[in-house]
Write a protein that binds this DNA or RNA. Structure first.
Lengths: 338, 338
DNA sequence: TCCGCGAGATGTATCGTTAAATCTCGTGGC
DNA sequence: GCCACGAGATTTAACGATACATCTCGCGGA
């Protein structure tokens, strides 16, 4: 391994001068700078980021912690963030916390957090108390829906509003019995599913429709496979619905398959709406009606909050909520979106 | 920040003893060990991985570099690898190289590679010459299909064989004009698309079917959206086919939508087969016939090759090819898979 | 002539940990 | 009673970079 002192020796200057050149600091003569750069090139020297980090604290790397790589939502999120950071010379690495409280806590250990200049955390397994226990010296922005202590900076979607829009749309398209797939009416701590179920519930109230508890179909992993079998089972079990609000697009994809298994047509027999507006959702057959949570704003805002903390550790925490917009497609019988 | 010497002072021992305790080394008395652990707990001390890495070289972290987070294949890959590493106490972080040569090279800079104990590289933008130029001191295993210098350890799928199986299956189900979506007949360097096109081509030869160059529909990003519009455009342009072999499932999903746009039914008018057996493929409507590249083996073998290099830097390079298996589902008219 | 100044370069201490060498005893063999 | 031995603990010197203080000069002003 070639170090800075190898370069310094070869260029006939001090280590400090090499460091100054590479960090574009002042007080280096033009000719010296050139000589150093030549030698760097010639020896193929590259800086040791570990050493720099230990000494200076800066890493140039942002960490994103997500529950699962293979939920499409997180893949898209990671991709967007990575692209947004690239032009600033920052660099994203993604870790999977595995959706369990235990692994999420381990991903949030000081040891692991220290490795980043900042962390974007999309937690699901942690509750308020866990988050309260963590006092990292690294800027963190929470992405997500669960309740969090005030001191955290945070960006989230307009869950209740979005779910209400989706459900209203289903009702507006003639639905009278709207199930919520992945719904959750009570939980020790509010989270994505409870908020979206609230929105569903509000829309039903507003429309004067009853909400039969049988219409809430719970899920635990929110995977396509689980959603599919849940829907199949529900229909086989005699559940009668004319519409389904799926709490995520991933779940809606499973519902599409499950309804097909049960011999029901979408949207003729049962209408369907999701939430997230995944890239794939526009390309399903039929196209999935869904809620667009305004991904670009989510990303922009999350990075803005992060940069703000990077500049000023004591910046006041901010909670940002992105707007929700309905995207009507083939799984519902309404007119197309504007 | 609390350091080891804070712990040492509080426990009335030397820093080295704390280090010995935390690293479970011998020559520490039982009572001393307990006292140290108590103090660690009490102060909430966590090791500084950066310092450890600088001194010892070990990081406990494996890097996975993929072109795009939002291609479903890579999300699933990352998830599988992450789960496989967890029980060994190793830890996966994923980076996106953005599919461009430039960004891929930057992800492979010594500086970035040094951060990991080992690297799994799923490169697409790099050619043989680029890979030949890189001489990292970190164990690398290449995952993927392009031609690579002999000295690299590598795991890949049975591309040609798989593509042949898929195409044979289509032909066996009565297809006579089989297009290859995402196909590429010539390229400066062989890659995923060329190998799979070769397999398609072999199957046609074997069946005595001509391969009209118009049947090769090229793509550049292999995204769902691109595939969809390519198929729409091809059909609108007068292309007549009774089957499509899509080089990836992602592309097949786009084809499904594109065929629907063109008013063609699957599998009645046009049969369809993909490659990769993504998680979602079983849950499309109709279910996607595809090639299963044996993901578990791919992951197991990749990690085996990595561990082998971790143990012995000079281990002879190995090239592993996983087996391909047809999974017949609703997009083709054959009997179901065994 | 002398001093102050600043550009250009260097020296030194340090970040927090670990490898390797060293020190300190109590014990058992002869 | 002496010495070898090894468990238990400590000391020392890095790992490769950077922050900060310092040094050297040539030059212009008093």
């Amino acid at each position: 391994m070639i170090t800075m002192s190898d370069v310094a020796r070869a260029a006939g200057v001090s280590v400090m001068t090499v460091s100054n050149v590479l960090n574009e600091r002042t007080n280096v003569g033009a000719d010296t700078r050139l000589r150093v750069l030549e030698v760097v090139e010639e020896l193929g020297y590259e800086i040791n980021l570990t050493a720099r980090r230990l000494r200076s604290g800066r890493t140039g790397t942002i960490g994103l912690i997500v529950p699962q790589f293979d939920l499409h939502y997180y893949g898209e999120l990671a991709s967007r963030i990575s692209e947004a950071l690239a032009p600033e010379g920052m660099h994203l690495v993604v870790e999977q916390s595995g959706a369990s409280r235990e692994r999420e806590l381990s991903a949030l250990s000081l040891a692991r957090l220290q490795q980043y200049d900042g962390v974007l955390l999309s937690a699901v397994g942690l509750d308020m108390a866990d988050l309260d226990r963590i006092h990292p010296d690294v800027p963190i922005v929470l992405l997500g829906e669960q309740a969090v202590p005030e001191r955290y900076h945070r960006v989230r979607m307009g869950n209740v509003e979005g779910a209400r829009l989706a459900t209203e749309h289903l009702v507006g398209c003639g639905a009278r019995r709207v199930a919520v797939l992945g719904g959750k009416t009570s939980a020790p701590h509010p989270e994505m599913a409870t908020y979206r179920t609230d929105g569903w519930s509000q829309a039903l109230d507003q429309a004067g429709l009853p909400h039969d508890p049988a219409l809430v179909i719970p899920l635990t992993t929110y995977s396509i496979a689980e959603a599919r079998s849940a829907i199949s089972a529900a229909v086989d079990g005699g559940l009668e619905v004319d519409a389904i609000f799926a709490v995520t697009d991933e779940v809606a994809i499973g519902a599409l398959a499950g309804l097909h298994d049960a011999g029901l047509r979408v949207p003729e027999d049962v209408q369907l709406a999701g939430f997230d507006n995944l890239g794939i959702s526009a390309h399903l057959v039929p196209g999935l009606t869904t809620i667009d949570p305004d991904h670009p704003t989510l990303v922009t805002e999350a990075l803005r909050l992060l940069r703000r903390q990077l500049k000023d550790r004591t910046a006041d925490p901010e909670h940002v909520v992105s707007g929700a917009r309905l995207v009507a497609r083939g799984t519902t019988r309404g007119r197309s979106a504007p």
